[in-house]
Amino acid sequence: MTAGPLVVQDATIGYGRVAISAGLNVDIPEGEFTVILGPNACGKSTLLKALARMLKPSAGQVLLDGKDIHSQPTRAVARRLGLLPQSPIAPDGITVADLVARGRYPHQGILKQWSAEDERVVAEAMAATDISELASRGVDELSGGQRQRVWIAMVLAQQTPLLLLDEPTTFLDITHQIEVLDLCAKLHREGRTLVAVLHDLNQAARYATHLIAMRGGEVVAEGAPADIVTAETVHQVFDLPCRIIDDPETGTPLVIPKALASAPV
């Protein structure tokens, strides 16, 4: 198997002197929708931050296209790799179109200012996320679901083949969670490589084409959802006794937590 576009090699990652993961090896496969999951504090967000070059491994390295990501110019990386962080900040009074336009940053320069190409890409990104009609609205007037689509449009305007999304569904109600995941699935079908951190096991099993399950800073299981979402793995990762059935909608694995024997009926 050839190495994917993003590879973590024997990396020790953490904050300051506290290592969250040590000797971590992860290979993000090209063209897949990879979901990283695991219990709180398992190191999944830390892994995503390392993939996004926000954290530099204290040992080992993260390779983008076979080269150390930290040795490449950060703007060049930004043309390959887009990132939607957990809580981005929308400046007060900014319009949807202006926010999406800021995604063009890595394609511009001091002498190469706003171009017709930028204009076209921004319009396409807004069309792809179904927010064209909101273009001149203020971002602070929008609902949570609309706002998340605006942020995704901003990352799309960056035109990167690789997209990293840190918990893109957190703080959204179930309808908007599904909406954002449907959008991610569409972006994946169009040929992008996606990596997302998700909390919901069943959503992960339904939308991911590749799963990475983590616990205690280590990768416990990795592979297609149908192969690795088993009662045994779920117990191993989440300490959750469960049964696995086929999702009646999609046929993907569906995790049903077991009722406790002592639970009131």
Partner: peptide, 11 residues
């Protein structure tokens, strides 16, 4: 202005 994380992502 979009946050340190977003700025890093944008290069």
């Amino acid at each position: 202005a979009l946050g340190d994380a977003t700025a890093t992502g944008l290069g």
